[in-house]
Amino acid sequence: MISDLGKEATNQLVRRMKDGDSAAFKFFFNTWKDRIYNFALRYSNDSYFAHEVMQKTFIQAYEKIHQLNDHSKLKSWLYRIASNNCFSEGRRVSRTTYVEVNEANSTVDHQYTPSGRFEKNEIKDLVNETLQMIPEDQRKVIIMKEYEGLKFREIAELLGESENTIKSRMYYGLDAMRKVLVQKNLTKEMYL
């Protein structure tokens, strides 16, 4: 993970990418592609959408790497691009039919296992579906915090909001998810 590389290694990686070192960019891509894909997948619950966002994010990162002045902010810079792409791609596909297909899929009832618990893959689908049922700005914050491990300060920075606004969205987002779980009659014994 790049955040584990340390400041100097991250700095060197960015410098090499700015110099057009394809091996450095390949390393960057291989390190981050799954994270960005997962981020977009959790945002949309649509694998095609996630691929599109990942593809655009790395193309833009490649084209705009020279605009990154503070090399230590590579991670939040990349997430900002991905976040913007989620928003723009979401607006684009909202006018197409495959979102309707996606929504139709989300209404499929999950089958309980004999023990009354969900299988791991079913839980993943259930979590992603539940995330889709809360407002976009809250969803983004929850994903960045819970799955990407960003600090509130970093999320605030990359979304261009105050830290308190981000925390407020986090609170309302978690509460909205709680209400969805209650509606679905899901208790923690079913998924823990």
Binding site: K120, I123, K124, V127, N128, T130, I142, E146, Y147, L174, D175, M177, R178, L181, L186, K188, Y191, L192
Partner: peptide, 10 residues
């Protein structure tokens, strides 16, 4: 609990 639910798919 909601956080725990989210973490199940992590």
């Amino acid at each position: 609990d909601v956080r725990s639910f989210l973490q199940t798919s992590k």
